[in-house]
């Protein structure tokens, strides 16, 4: 095996892929969240923002990179979870929560990750590849604003969205710090700061995205 392939087959190599893709996705979520603010400004702002993204020439390249990040993260994550279950064939009879080390978030990473994966597929299916509304009087501009309001007018959609965002917050509350630790950024000087940032980030994305879903629900499909 060449050095590069054996690097990515090693435990540290796999973890570094998880960390790098994870941190990139952390960055993507911020961009997504900031983009959503256009929704509050109004239908024109939001539709023009999405039209600007969709009509951008390099969008397919960016989408392919983003898809690759998600797929790599999910693939390596599931592989690690599977291998780790093999590393201890007989489990302990007693598992004490000593309050030291492991947290709820860190021990549930594969589960919250799976919820996010399912959410992501449905999210693309329902919105990106969902109903195609057109903005009246504007050729080729998709009315994403209307789509969002119609989609989130159903309480079930809002509830599922919030469940997924809580999972995302739990996942990133460990993942954000964990990525830095894996990549070797760990020092008593800033470890506490990274830990707090991880929680702050998790609250920001979890509450931030949920806010938009609730806000969209309160618009009653835009028919008020």
């Amino acid at each position: 095996m060449s050095w590069v392939s054996s690097y990515f087959a090693s435990s540290v190599g796999k973890k570094s892929v998880m960390a790098l893709t994870g941190l990139s996705l952390v960055g993507f979520l911020v961009v997504h969240l900031v983009g959503n603010i256009n929704m509050l400004i109004g239908s024109d702002a939001f539709n023009h923002y999405s039209h600007f993204l969709l009509s951008f020439e390099g969008i397919y390249v960016l989408e392919a990179v983003l898809a690759a990040l998600f797929l790599l993260h999910a693939f390596f994550g599931l592989m690690i979870a599977f291998q780790n279950s093999q590393a201890r064939p007989d489990s302990y009879s007693v598992q004490t929560k000593s309050g030291r080390g492991t947290t709820f978030a860190s021990s549930t990473m594969p589960y919250t990750g799976t919820i996010i994966l399912i959410f992501l597929i449905l999210h693309l299916f329902d919105l990106k590849f969902g109903e195609h509304y057109s903005v009246p009087n504007e050729e080729g501009v998709r009315d994403i604003y209307k789509l969002v309001l119609v989609y989130f007018s159903k309480p079930l959609h809002v509830a599922w969205y919030i469940i997924a965002m809580i999972s995302l917050a739990i996942h990133t509350s460990h993942g954000f710090w964990s990525a830095f630790q894996t990549l070797g950024f760990s020092h008593p000087k800033y470890d506490g700061f990274l830990r707090k940032s991880s929680i702050a980030y998790a609250v920001l994305v979890g509450a931030g995205f949920s806010f938009f879903a609730i806000w969209a629900y309160l618009q009653h499909g835009g028919n008020v």
Partner: peptide, 27 residues
């Protein structure tokens, strides 16, 4: 052995108090 997922139970269990800072350094 399994892959590290930064759960920190190792440093909590270590009778010599070795920190996961060493893991980051090795990584």
């Amino acid at each position: 052995f399994g892959n590290c997922t930064n759960e920190r139970l190792c440093e909590a269990a270590c009778p010599k108090g070795i920190s996961i800072i060493s893991i980051a350094r090795m990584n």
